[in-house]
Computed example of a mutant assay.
Amino acid sequence: MNTKKNLYQDFEHPFAQYVRILGKGKTGARSLTYQEAYDAFSMILKGEVLDVQLGAFLMLLRVKEESVDELAGFVQATRDQLKFKALQVDLDWSSYAGKRKHYPWFLLAALTLAQQGYNVVMHGAAGHTINRLYTEQVLEYLGYPICQTDLDVERELTKRHFAYLPLAAISPVLSELIGLRNVMGLRSPIHTLARLINPFNANATLQAIFHPAYRSSHQQAALKLGYLNSAVIKGEGGEFERNPDAKTLICGIKNGELYEHELPKLTAERSPVEEELDLATFKAVWEGKQQHAYGEIAITETMSIALYTMGVCDCFETAMQQAKEFWQTRHQTAKLG
């Protein structure tokens, strides 16, 4: 990114207008329109802004919280700069939070669906928040490759029906920006928009959020982006994983129509957190060599939401039955690596 300091002493930098819109005081500031958001983020992705402008822009958005138009504009600007091969993908699964208290059970839900022949692409970023276990680390432990190109994704979908693509392979700029989490001390809109990229135009998308207020903005932005089937939940640890210890409100899109559906709390008391996230235990559960009461509820419940979102099942009850069947028989075909 351009860091020259004195070039714009005599005339205004083209990006300054977007910082001014967001930061012009309590009465003068406003949200960006969709087109303004699209244009501003296009400049960011092309490296046409100064570092000081970028920091101000991201933090002003963070304080204000991005609007639906802003979020959709940012995501569309990102999607329009992608040059990936067209692939048949059933489910786009974003994974950007990492886990701290519980194992990443959502990952076993995704791998189980892949075993059944559904093409699942998962994308995420590792290491931007301290003391969390990220999907990329877990997949490497299980023997799954980390894709770097669309050809890698195509190969893995053909071989396993599952592929993981890091954000750095989707957009090096976004990867650099999401890494500023420990520099700024705050999450930025990058953490939100990355979840919505859907790089291969999958038929269905899944996103999880940390804060309940973001459910609706994700849902509305997905609709504005033209996504026909989508689900947003407040997932355990910020990942798309059903938490059995709490009610789960799904803000979704089904065949282009918005809906909300609440799933009930499933446990009488809050489940204990893991003393340590030992991946040997996680792998043993996947292979059917060990059981985990909390984990297996989280897996099947998460899988049922995915099945409903993909349109495999027309109601959550049927989806739950299907998920349990898939999980109970997965050890017959489970192959790692």
Rank of each mutant, 00 (worst) to 15 (best):
residue 252 G to S: 13
residue 12 E to L: 14
residue 293 A to C: 04
residue 264 P to A: 11
residue 236 E to K: 10
residue 247 K to Q: 15
residue 144 Y to D: 12
residue 306 A to P: 01
residue 195 R to S: 15
residue 67 S to T: 15
residue 241 E to A: 15
residue 225 L to M: 08
residue 290 Q to P: 04
residue 62 R to L: 09
residue 39 D to T: 15
residue 334 A to M: 10
residue 263 L to M: 15
residue 120 V to G: 06
residue 197 I to K: 04
residue 97 A to F: 07
residue 241 E to Y: 04
residue 159 K to W: 02
residue 125 A to Q: 09
residue 208 A to T: 05
residue 33 T to S: 13
residue 146 I to W: 09
residue 95 S to N: 08
residue 292 H to F: 14
residue 92 D to M: 06
residue 70 E to G: 12
residue 109 A to T: 05
residue 224 K to N: 03
residue 75 V to G: 10
residue 201 N to Y: 02
residue 227 Y to I: 10
residue 94 S to M: 05
residue 15 F to L: 11
residue 171 S to A: 12
residue 189 P to H: 07
residue 182 N to V: 10
residue 27 T to P: 00
residue 13 H to W: 03
residue 154 E to N: 08
residue 84 F to D: 01
residue 294 Y to S: 06
residue 3 T to F: 00
residue 248 T to E: 07
residue 113 L to W: 01
residue 299 I to G: 09
residue 4 K to E: 13
residue 175 S to P: 02
residue 281 T to K: 09
residue 75 V to M: 06
residue 225 L to N: 07
residue 86 A to C: 02
residue 120 V to H: 00
residue 78 T to K: 04
residue 134 Y to F: 15
residue 16 A to T: 13
residue 134 Y to A: 11
residue 225 L to I: 07
residue 84 F to T: 04
residue 258 L to P: 07
residue 257 E to R: 02
residue 8 Y to E: 02
residue 238 G to V: 10
residue 21 I to L: 13
residue 280 A to N: 12
residue 199 P to I: 05
residue 157 L to N: 08
residue 74 F to H: 05
residue 199 P to A: 07
residue 110 A to S: 14
residue 54 L to K: 10
residue 184 M to Q: 03
residue 3 T to P: 03
residue 226 G to C: 08
residue 140 E to N: 14
residue 184 M to D: 00
residue 183 V to T: 15
residue 279 L to G: 06
residue 134 Y to E: 09
